[in-house]
Design a protein around this nucleic acid. Structure first.
Lengths: 233, 233
DNA sequence: ATTATTGTTTAACATTTTGTTATATAATGA
DNA sequence: TCATTATATAACAAAATGTTAAACAATAAT
């Protein structure tokens, strides 16, 4: 369960926010004092922080600025209408989003969810986060290790899958056979790069319509292989 | 320099956005068609994408949804006032931000900057360093080894690519054929400098409109070759 | 233990790239 | 201008690289 810190001196607003967030499965704490809020944020116990701009002791800008030095979690600024100029300043100080009161609770929740999703997407172990990789008809389901082309499922062996997944995880990047060998087989592996070529061939046989004219895994002569996400008409 | 893709059918708005972004040091491309926009976004050549909601062929929601499968860069939705309900939907589909027209150009730029900052912060700043070299219409994508001229992709062989990359990495500098030979072919290479000349020809054939009157790779008689980043009337 | 599956190596073959050469064209300077 | 020199172009030969099938080895399954 995600934990949210609300730094807001108006208790009515703060509780409204908390209630809505709780209804949506979050756990939210309220702090009414700016300096205290910054301290709590820095404990690292929260997944996201919502900060009001006008606060006793330490205003929202300062909190954002200070917190950002040590936190990369989403920081959302909230302020009363009319302080719009500060919007830009808030963003420049390191806030991730800006909401103007009054806002609908639904919007708050949606934004919070969106920020959490993005944060996990970008932080999450490089690829495990996204479950399905898609490149123009090619689908790789990382959870089930299933691969399909235009809806038709294709059986991959372990090495084939690994190699394909690696290429698909780095679309548009060229990798030499040596690079692929050390990436998939391990740095210390003794072996010929021909192995890579053979596996590429086997993958192509399975996923390409015309393996001698590959659509997905391109060969760059003298350079390596590349899985391109470009459609080619 | 960060590259931004603007998917927006209203050319007035698109150009306004582009101009402001360019004034702020970004490079921005415009696509007016939804389906085409998605394709361009998926090439992986952009650091951020701005999408209008109402588009011909493929609307903003679909673009966001599809693009998000393969991209973790910031996706910003833009829409006319009154479509506010969709705000939440856009965010749920994977957008990173939402702007309602009309917005001030300053705000657009501030948000874009903020998104880029966050992205780099969360990605660990690993990417984005010198991924794309640009010289007046000529683009070299070092990750994918793709070269394009005015948006059209051009196929390069390994040696051609190496040579072009070398020249483009040192714009405005003249290199003798001897220098290029030892830089690309190696210090100990036995071979004629004619080889360099021939490769220059081959590159010119691919990237120059009129290879006998080259715009990119100039010949300096008795001295060598130079890739100039200046336009020449 | 036997069989089936998967992975690796080999070698013949096909393809692409690269370098060389010959010839044409253009620039330079007397 | 004309000879001289440098560069451009095209065609070809050589080298490098990639593909493929098939034999062999290793691993997993029955």
């Amino acid at each position: 369960m995600k934990r949210i810190l609300i730094i807001e001196d108006d208790l009515n607003i703060a509780e409204l926010e908390r209630d809505y967030l709780q209804l949506n499965g979050f756990k939210a704490d309220i702090v009414q004092d700016g300096a205290q809020g910054l301290q709590r944020a820095l404990t690292g116990k929260y997944d996201i922080v919502i900060v009001d701009l006008m606060l006793p002791n330490k205003d929202g800008y300062e909190i954002i600025k200070e917190a950002r030095k040590n936190l990369d979690i989403p920081l959302v600024v909230v302020s009363a209408r009319g302080e719009d100029i500060s919007k830009i300043r808030g963003l420049e100080y390191g806030a991730d989003d800006y909401l103007t009161k009054p806002f609908s609770p639904g919007e708050l929740v949606a934004r919070i969810k969106s920020h959490i999703k993005r944060y996990e997407r970008l932080k999450g172990n490089s690829r495990g986060a996204s479950e399905v990789l898609t490149h123009a008809g090619l689908e790789i389901h990382t959870a089930s290790h299933q691969v399909s082309v235009n809806g038709r499922e294709v059986q991959m062996t372990a090495k084939e899958y690994e190699l394909l997944l690696f290429l698909a995880s780095h679309p548009n990047m060229v990798f030499s056979k040596e690079h692929l060998l050390s990436a998939i087989w391990g740095d210390d592996y003794f072996g010929d790069t021909a192995t890579v070529a053979v596996h590429i061939q086997k993958i192509r046989k399975k996923i390409e319509k015309d393996p001698s004219n590959p659509e997905f895994i391109e060969t760059l002569w003298g350079t390596g292989y590349r899985l391109t996400s470009n459609y080619r008409g």
